[in-house]
Simulated scan of single mutants.
Amino acid sequence: MIKGTLHQEDITLINIYAPNTGAPKFVKQLLIELKEDINNNTIIVGDLNTPLTPMDRTSRQNINKEIIELNEKLDQMDLIDIYRTLHPKTAECTFFSSVHRTFSKTNHMLGSKGSLNKFKKIEITSRIFSDNNETRNHLQEKGWKNTNM
């Protein structure tokens, strides 16, 4: 968690990396624990390892009870996925499961509904999926020398 000031306004940034298993439950519990630190000037970013909407996953993936409960918690806390709100019809993927052969959007940027007007532009720029060979190749193209993954 980082707290600071941006353009003379207090801001809190929270970066979350959820585990591969039990991610929706983990994120929901973390939001409950951080509730006192979350306000209109909080931005939560990270790999939640959870597609939050049908647009964020392939048709073969099911939405389960834990994802529904996580979405209910987000709604109770007045939090939205800022990218999804600004791009409701864009199917942008941030994760590829080679085991299941599915693409999904598991990286999210959450913020208060009241802060939505502060965002002029938001986009997903990285096209690197969870494939170490692809990541290693990308890093080597960018000039990284030590890419032992």
Score class of each variant (00 low, 15 high):
82 I>V: 14
83 Y>Q: 01
83 Y>G: 00
83 Y>H: 14
83 Y>N: 02
83 Y>V: 09
84 R>S: 14
85 T>A: 05
85 T>E: 14
85 T>V: 14
85 T>H: 10
85 T>D: 12
86 L>C: 09
87 H>K: 13
87 H>R: 12
88 P>V: 01
88 P>L: 12
90 T>H: 05
91 A>Q: 07
92 E>D: 04
92 E>L: 02
92 E>A: 11
93 C>A: 15
94 T>C: 04
94 T>A: 06
94 T>H: 01
95 F>I: 03
96 F>L: 06
96 F>M: 11
97 S>C: 11
97 S>A: 02
97 S>M: 06
98 S>I: 00
98 S>P: 00
100 H>M: 11
101 R>C: 05
103 F>N: 12
103 F>V: 06
104 S>F: 00
104 S>G: 07
105 K>G: 04
105 K>V: 11
106 T>F: 01
106 T>I: 15
106 T>C: 10
107 N>D: 15
109 M>I: 15
111 G>N: 04
113 K>R: 14
113 K>T: 13
114 G>S: 12
115 S>C: 12
119 F>G: 03
120 K>L: 02
120 K>N: 14
121 K>T: 13
121 K>M: 04
121 K>E: 09
121 K>Y: 10
121 K>A: 08
122 I>H: 04
122 I>D: 05
123 E>R: 07
123 E>L: 05
124 I>Q: 01
125 T>I: 15
127 R>Q: 15
128 I>W: 03
128 I>Q: 07
128 I>Y: 02
129 F>C: 10
129 F>T: 06
130 S>V: 01
131 D>H: 03
131 D>P: 07
132 N>K: 14
132 N>M: 12
132 N>F: 04
132 N>I: 09
133 N>M: 11
133 N>P: 01
134 E>N: 09
137 N>R: 14
137 N>S: 12
138 H>Y: 13
139 L>Q: 07
139 L>M: 09
139 L>Y: 08
140 Q>R: 13
141 E>S: 14
141 E>G: 09
141 E>L: 11
141 E>I: 00
